[in-house]
Amino acid sequence: MTKSFGSRCEQIAAIVRKDFLIGLRRRATFAAMMMFALTAVASLSLSTGGSFVEPKILSAMLWVVIFFAASAGISGTFDDEAQACTLPTLKLYAAAQAILFGKMAGVLLSLIALTTFILPIFLILFDVAVENFFLLTTTLLAGLVGLSAAGTLTAALTTSATVKGGLFPILLFPVTLPIFLPAIALTEAAFTGAAFEASALVVIAAFDAILILASSILYDYL
């Protein structure tokens, strides 16, 4: 048991490292995700033209930007490998669960990178003074974990689709709604410094755990 767990972890680490190397060399996916986020934030900021935007709307906009940029960036998690015919090789040499969690970890890291890139730009362009930075970071991190879990399984589902245009966000959105709704409320509280419901954070964390567990169970049936 411990030996297989250790080798599982080694496989996960190898896959994350491999995807990171390929991501560095083939920057297109990553660049597209960042530029998508930048374009979305710029267009929102330009259209509001520096006028005051309510914190509630701001926090919703931030999550919408993250959701669609993430969709652009992670929908090809499995599909890129399927197109390159490397997915069957990977599936032969690595355990299914190691592939799932390796990909999930990679997706989480790229989403953290995305958020680290876009958040300061967002805060500066909309002139947001964050009152509770700790809450903001915790909420973003908790949200991204769930988004990675659901996103990775959804990316595995869409790989076999013959028509892919737009399919990924359509599938992902309803599944991640239980994360977005409390996350938007918490982000608003972080912007304004208002009192917040800690139970919302618990809801996100619980749903994260359920998504990770469900992805792990369901992936074996694919």
């Binding site: 491999k18 190397l21 390929i22 060399r25 083939r26 390159a84 015919c85 490397t86 069957p88 090789t89 032969l92 040499y93």
Partner: peptide, 18 residues
């Protein structure tokens, strides 16, 4: 199990050693 098959490719973006 190991395999060599036209349907199973290696990574073009990695070096031979990698």
């Amino acid at each position: 199990i190991a395999a060599v098959s036209p349907e199973m490719k290696i990574y073009d973006d990695l070096t031979a050693t990698e």
